[in-house]
Design a protein around this nucleic acid. Structure first.
Lengths: 135, 135
DNA sequence: TTTGATGCAAATGTTTTGCATGCAA
DNA sequence: TTGCATGCAAAACATTTGCATCAAA
C-alpha cells in the first residue's frame, strides 16, 4: 500500500535505535545517538526520516504540550503516561477505552473516528522520592 | 488562593475577547484582534497574560500536535473535537469519561490523576463538502 | 512610591526546507 | 544513469525573556 522506499542506512539506524529503547526519545536524542555510528548524519535527516516513518505508521509520534515530540517504535495501539514531575513517558498496559469515541459522538453532528489521549500524574520513582522527602 | 494580580486593561481585553468567541483562537489571532483596541500591545504581553490566566485556571490552553496552542475561556471540564480537514476546534457536549483514569491506573505502578484527550474526525461542514464533491 | 505589567527586540527551542552532492536501485 | 536520500545551513514558527519604561495600587 505504501510506495516502496529507497533503502537508507541512516533510516535503518534510526529504526533499530528506536526498537532498542523504551524511553520514547526526542528527535535530538535520536540524533545524538545515531551520530555514534554515523558521525556525519544531520538533524534534518533524522527529522525527515522520523516524519516519513510516522506517516507510514512504522513508528508513533507523540506530541504533548509545547515540548519536543517523542517517538515510539511500538505501533500497536496503546496509551502513554507522562510524569508531571520528571517528564518520563511510560507505556501503559490497559484495557481498551475505544468506547469513548462512541460517547463523544453521541451528541455531535460531525463524525468522530479517533482520539488522542495521554495520562498524567506521578510515576513510581517520583512517588518514592516524595515519600523520602517527607520522612 | 491565587495571589491577587495588579489590574491591567490589556489582560481584561484578552479575557473579554476570549469570552466573546467560541473559535478557540491562537495567541496570534488574539494579538491581532486586541490590536484593534490597543494598537501598541505586544505579542509578548499576549503570551504572558495567556500563560498567567491558564496557570490560574481562568482559561484553558489547548495544545495539539505541533500546531500553535489555542485558548478557551470555557473552563468547566469539557472535551474538544479537532477536524482533520479544516482544523477547526469544537467544544463537545458529552457525558463524563473520567472512568478512563481508573482503567489506566489498574495495572500501573505510579499514580494517575488526570488525562488529556481530544477527538478527531470530520466536522459537519467538511462532511457536507465531501458529499457535494462526490455528487 | 513601589512593584507588577508593558512594549520592544533579541533569543530560544523545535522543526522544516532549499540546494548541491551522494548513494541505492 | 536516474532519482530519492543526505548533509549542511538558513529559514520558519511558536514561544519566551531581558530590560527599560509605564501605570496600577
Amino acid at each position: 500500500m505504501n510506495t516502496p522506499l529507497k533503502h537508507s542506512r541512516q533510516r535503518d539506524a534510526i529504526v533499530s535505535f528506536l526498537m532498542g529503547t523504551t524511553e520514547h526519545p526526542t528527535a535530538d536524542t535520536i540524533y545524538i545517538n545515531i551520530k555514534k555510528t554515523f558521525p556525519n548524519i544531520s538533524l534534518g535527516t533524522v527529522y525527515r526520516n522520523l516524519a516519513l516513518l510516522a506517516e507510514r505508521g512504522e513508528i508513533l509520534k507523540l506530541s504533548c504540550d509545547g515540548k519536543a515530540d517523542r517517538f515510539d517504535a511500538t505501533t500497536d495501539p496503546h496509551y502513554h503516561f507522562i510524569c508531571s514531575e520528571c517528564g518520563d513517558v511510560i507505556d501503559l498496559e490497559m484495557e481498551s477505552i475505544d468506547q469513548i469515541n462512541t460517547i463523544a459522538n453521541a451528541n455531535f453532528s460531525g463524525e468522530i473516528t479517533n482520539h488522542v489521549a495521554f495520562f498524567c500524574g506521578k510515576c513510581e520513582n517520583c512517588l518514592n522520592n516524595q515519600k523520602k522527602e517527607i520522612n
